[in-house]
Amino acid sequence: MNSRIFHIASNTFREAVRDRVLYNLIAFALLLSGAAVFVGQISLEIEKLVVINLGLTAVSLFGVVIAIFIGIGLVSKEIEKRTLYTVLSRPVRRWEFIVGKFFGLAGTLVVNTFFMAIGVFAALFYVSHRFIRADALIFVALYFAVLEFIILCALALLFSSFSSPLLSAVFAFSLFVIGSFAEDLRSFAGMAHGFTRWLATGAAYLVPNFSAFNIVSSIAHEQPVAPQLILHNTLYAFFYAAMALSGAVLIFENRNLK
C-alpha cells in the first residue's frame, strides 16, 4: 500500500479508537453475556440456536451502525472542521485521502468484529460447554458480516463526499434496509411487466444485495455453506465497494472545498 494511504488509514483507525467507538464492545459483551445466562435458564435444547442467532445478528447490527455513523462523517467532518486543508496542502492526492479513509474505517470494523466474535464464541461455550466442528461455520457468517461492512463503508464514504452527515446517514441506512430485501425486490421484478419490470430490475441490481450475506439462520441450524457462495459474495463485495469508492473519488476530485 502507498505509504500516504497507510498513514491516513492508521490515523482514521486511531481516531475511531480514541473517539471511544470500541466502547460499543463493552455494550456488546454485556448484551451477549446477559443473553447467554438468560437463554441458558429459559430454553431447553435450543440455547445454542438462540445464542448463535442473537450473537451474529448483534455483530451485524453493531457493525452496520458503526460503519454508517463513522463513515458519513469521514469526509464531511474533515471539510467542516477544516482539518482537510492541512492534509491536502501536502503531497497527498485526493484519491489517496479517500482510499486511506476507507481502509482506516474498514480496519476499525475488522478489529471490532474480531472482538465481537470472541464474545460470540464465549457465550456459545457458556451455553454448550464445548465446541463442535459445525461451529466453524460461524467464521463464514462473520466473514460475510465483514464483507457487508466493507460495502457499507464505501457507500457511506460516497455519500459523505457530496452530502451533509444527516443526509448521508439517511441515504446509507435506506440503502442498507432496501439491500436487505434485495432478493424480494428481484423476485418482484421477475413478476412485473413492461416498463415497471425494467425499472424494478434496474433498481434490484443497483442496490447492494445484502440479503445474500445473511446466512445466520442456516448457520444456526448447522447447514453447510456452498464454496461458490463464499467466492461470489467476496467478488461481489469487492466489486461493489470498488464502484462506490470510485464514485466517491470522482466526486471528491472535483469538489471545491469552500
Binding site: N11, R14, E15, R18, D19, K81, R82, T83, Y85, T86, S89, R90, P91, V92, R93
Partner: peptide
C-alpha cells in the same frame, strides 16, 4: 503534487484532529 512537498500552509483559524 511534488510542489507541495516544498511548501507549508497555515489556514485561517486552524483546527486539528483533537484526539
Amino acid at each position: 503534487p511534488e510542489v507541495k512537498a516544498q511548501i507549508g500552509f497555515l489556514p485561517e483559524q486552524p483546527y486539528f484532529y483533537d484526539h
